[in-house]
Nucleic acid binder design. Structure first.
Length: 653
RNA sequence: GCCGAAGUAGCUCAGCGGUAGAGCAACUGAUUCGUAAUCAGUAGGUCGUCAGUUCAAUCCUGACCUUCGGCUCCA
């Protein structure tokens, strides 16, 4: 068989040659350094036979693909270590059943069904054994078995592997990887690829946690124990990852919410139902007012109010009942009638649309509301303000004609761009979610012209706006395509921050219509859109984004005045009064504390500006300004300070 | 919901089969100070809830509640 190399040279090798053979043919130095290969774009290990005629590139530890290989092999090393642990405890090897052990973003995991639970304390022991296996440099071998022989191997021993083999398409090669021997080693059903030997694994790995995970992610199937590990090529990468974890903890919105008195969650009130403390509420109100001014002021939205509950009938019309019932709070019975806490604002808004006859001249009609909705989130999924059971959505529904969809999406995208720029969010992109007619026909119905037209309109809007976007199959809603907004958080995680949808089905269910130019009745389409998503989640994201260092225009307390001694209190009052007259939010720290203590507390509270006033300042009608994150202090007249703060607030900085 | 871990003062945490401790915060008093913690004192807890074991439970056992991590990134 022939193999071509990156430099154009051809190798002539015997049939079923592996990348190892190819490396050896090139030279002994490369053969020694080789850890894998790329064959026609696919990652291969050194053990798997190459197809004839491929383009081959040999990989060494310098190539980025190395990471994927050692993470995968580490999962096997961990499985071996776990088995050995249980063997030492008197269990036989078969009693430790293995499910899957894939490579993940920063490492790997393995799902394990052990005869007795793996405990947190076991992790260092397992890790120790893993390091020994790595040090013992066990070579890996690959072999294939026919399907019945493979099944025979696991029959009555490991139901997970059996199921995996059964779900493989017929004709697919069933491969195994073995490291070491039967006495000290491990064999696993695995499609590979792997390193040639456990000794090639860099020592920068760590088992991080243990958690439950359903077999195949299905809550009706057995719960397995999942051990997570991280693994990196270099010490620096490992340390960087650990630092990121620390940073994530430091920025955790729940911790900051506690430290900065922003919100609290009370058992008495109920889980997933946060209380906004005055400072947090202040910022939220700023967010709401900011959006109100943008939407009602510049973007032609009409704000409405709707109640928090509605009769069951409304949700039968919308289709939430029975399809969405699982995500809704149980009904409230009043005078023998069922009422539901609203899970979404759209049905109420549809009723507002329907309340008066509409003409094409009324369209597009943009109904907006900071609408509070209640959703029955799984108790285990609740988390601070990120996932709660009562949220207030920065919601709006745009009723328009099909022809107006593209233009309206362009306006929505423009609004996103403006708002996110004002909040200093730059790393975000759009994700257009399309239907998956093949795999989920019940959900999406038939691929009719509705779908094509609406997808084309959104795509057109994205293209014309020139924004970054990706497309994904299957995440669309049953009533139309979805446009999510994805952000990269400060620690590099991707998150969905807002969701927009096009809806060409539900308006019809509500009998919504308008009279067109010809005097005929037509059904509008609806764009569901939420720029900030929910204020709750946006606030949580923004809190972590800024680490609680809010810009001046959002800070509940913009400045704290620190009088050096009590005799400066009068002057402090005067400065404060002057600032308040100019709509600045200022407090005086008049505790009988030393100046240093007051400055420290203001720093810990992340107050943007500290104004120190003493004899010199009182004399000069000035303040000494200590700005957060600025090393140098400066003294400036009060009038100048007020001017400077005013322009910063106006510029939203 | 399910698996695992945790729950001790407002916060962060120590402790332990013989009915609780620190630091910070709070309060009182003294100190009036020039850029990240002045000193002293006072008060504060059914040790998440409810049962059980025990002469005795915050500690051991069980149930429940709440919080935290995780629940396909598919051999």
């Amino acid at each position: 068989m022939k193999i071509s190399l990156p430099d154009g040279k051809q190798l002539d090798l015997p049939a079923n040659a592996t990348a190892k053979d190819a490396a050896q043919a090139i030279g002994p130095g490369l053969a020694k350094a080789a850890i894998g290969a790329i064959a026609d774009g696919d990652l291969y290990d050194l053990m798997k036979p190459l197809p004839d005629g491929v383009k081959l590139r040999i990989l060494t530890e310098k190539d980025p693909e190395y990471q994927q290989l050692f993470r995968h092999t580490l999962a096997h090393v961990m499985a071996q270590a776990v088995r050995e642990l249980y063997r030492e405890r008197g269990f036989n090897l078969e009693s430790v059943k293995l499910a899957i052990g894939p490579v993940i973003e920063n490492g790997f995991y393995y799902d394990i069904d052990a005869p007795e639970p793996i405990r947190e304390e076991d992790l260092p022991v397992i890790e120790e054994k893993m390091r020994k296996i790595v040090a013992d440099n066990l070579p890996l071998h690959r072999f294939v078995l026919p399907r019945d022989a493979a099944l025979e191997r696991f029959k009555g021993i490991d139901p997970y592997k059996t199921e995996l083999i059964e779900s493989l398409p017929p004709g697919e090669e069933i491969s195994f990887y073995q490291q070491g021997d039967d006495a000290y080693g491990f064999t696993d059903l695995c499609r590979g690829p792997h390193l040639p030997s456990t000794g090639c694994i860099p020592p920068f790995f760590k088992l991080t946690s243990i958690a439950g995970a359903y077999w195949r992610g299905d809550a009706s199937r057995p719960m397995l124990q999942r051990i997570y590990g991280i693994a990196f090529r270099t010490k620096e990468e490992l340390e960087n990852y650990l630092w990121q974890q620390e940073e994530a903890k430091r920025r955790d919105h729940r911790k900051l919410g506690q430290e900065l008195d922003l919100f609290t969650i009370s058992e008495e009130v109920g889980k997933g139902l946060p209380l906004w403390l005055p400072r947090g509420a202040f910022i939220r109100r700023q967010l709401e007012q900011y959006m109100y001014q943008k939407e009602a002021g510049e973007y032609g939205y009409d704000y409405v109010y709707t109640p928090h509950i509605a009769a069951a009938k409304l949700y039968y019309t919308s289709g939430h009942l029975p399809y969405y019932a699982e995500d809704m709070y149980a009904p409230i019975i009043i005078e023998d009638e069922e009422y539901y806490l609203k899970p979404m604002n759209c049905p109420h808004h549809h009723m507002i649309y329907a309340a008066r006859p509409k003409s094409y001249r009324d369209l597009p009609l943009r109904l907006a509301e900071g609408g509070t909705v209640y959703r029955f989130e799984l108790s285990g999924a609740l988390s601070g303000l990120q996932r709660v059971r009562g949220i207030t959505i920065n919601d709006a529904h745009i009723y328009c004609t099909k022809e107006q969809v593209e233009a309206e999406f362009i306006r929505v995208i423009q609004l996103f761009n403006e708002v996110y720029a004002d909040f200093g969010i730059s790393d975000y992109w759009f994700r257009l979610s399309l239907p998956d007619f093949e795999n989920n026909p019940e959900k999406f119905g038939d691929p009719g012209p509705h779908w094509d037209e609406s997808i084309a309109a959104i795509r057109g809007a994205l293209e014309k706006s020139g924004v970054k976007y990706v497309e994904g199959i299957g995440e669309a809603s049953f009533y139309g395509p979805k446009l999510d907004v994805q952000v990269r958080t400060i620690i590099g995680k991707e998150e969905t921050i807002a969701t927009n949808q096009l809806d060409f089905i539900v308006p019809g269910r509500f009998g919504l219509e308008f009279t067109n130019e010809k005097g005929e009745k037509e059904t509008p389409v609806v764009i569901h859109r939420a720029i900030m998503g929910s204020f709750d989640r946006f606030f949580a994201f923004y809190l972590e984004h800024t680490a609680g260092d809010f810009p001046l225009w959002l800070s509940p307390v913009q400045a704290v005045i620190v009088p050096i001694s009590d005799r400066h209190l009068d002057y402090a009052q005067k400065v404060a009064a002057e600032m308040r007259k100019n709509k600045l939010r200022v407090e005086i720290d008049d505790r009988p504390e030393r100046m240093n203590a007051k400055i420290r507390d203001a720093e810990l509270q992340k107050i943007p500006l500290v104004l120190v006033v003493g004899d010199k300042e009182a004399e000069a009608e000035a303040v000494n300004l200590r700005e957060r994150h600025v090393k140098e202090q400066r003294t400036l007249p009060v009038a100048e300070l007020i001017g400077e703060m005013g322009s910063r607030v106006a510029a939203r900085k």
